[in-house]
């Protein structure tokens, strides 16, 4: 029931994640952050089996930090997504696969372009203009199809996100305690009031 949602606009990528941390029928925490920052210009949002999610995200985060220390530069978002895909794909055929679905938002400082990658626990990786995992995708895809433009500004993107969140609040069977919104742009990763 977790919501993770991403929209790539003209010069940044917006990530929204639900703030409710649930276990079974209970909400244990209403200020959860389902993202980890992988580098100065990349952010990973995740959902899936609790336990696996944070473990996997922080494993990737540590690997990206290690890479940055060794090579004294950070991987591009495309390379980051490929790396994560490979980790998920090899995990899939291990004794106990990570059951984690992720979105990777990035800003490539070389090409000056934002990016958004959709990856599932099977190791599927696609670069998309907007996407979501889980039930949220069913409720928001049609809205995004209708209103999305590639040349939207950050504010227009946030307005579109507002539309999606409204729909989710209306249709989802539980209160997901609102969303935490982060923006990945040229200036790095920032939390946005929402």
């Amino acid at each position: 029931m977790d919501i993770i949602l991403g929209i790539r606009v003209q010069d940044c990528t917006i990530i929204a994640t639900s703030k409710a941390f649930t276990r079974g029928i209970s909400i244990l925490n209403s200020t959860d952050d389902k993202t980890r920052q992988l580098g100065e210009h990349s952010l990973m949002a995740f959902t899936g089996e609790s336990g696996d999610t944070v473990q996997f995200a922080e494993y990737i985060q540590a690997n990206m930090q290690l890479h940055a220390m060794r090579e004294s530069y950070e991987l591009s978002p495309k390379a980051t997504a490929s790396f994560v895909r490979n980790q998920l794909a090899s995990s899939l055929r291990s004794r106990k696969p990570y059951q984690v679905n992720v979105l990777i938002a990035g800003f490539d400082t070389k090409t000056e372009k934002p990016s958004l990658n959709w990856l599932d626990y099977l190791g599927t990786n696609v670069e998309l203009p907007y996407c979501a995992h889980g039930y949220a995708a069913f409720y928001t895809s049609s809205l995004l199809d209708r209103h999305y433009r590639a040349d939207m500004t950050q504010q227009e993107g946030l307005d579109l996100l507002q539309l999606c969140v409204k729909e989710l609040q209306l249709r989802m069977p539980m209160d997901f305690k609102g969303v935490l919104v982060k923006v990945v742009s040229n200036e790095g990763v920032k939390i946005v009031d929402f």
């Binding site: 090579e71 991987l75 591009s76 495309k78 390379a79 490929s82 790396f83 490979n86």
Partner: peptide, 12 residues
């Protein structure tokens, strides 16, 4: 190239 889908940097 397989893991990152980019060419390896020369020095690396």
């Amino acid at each position: 190239l397989k893991t990152y889908n980019e060419d390896i940097p020369c020095e690396q």
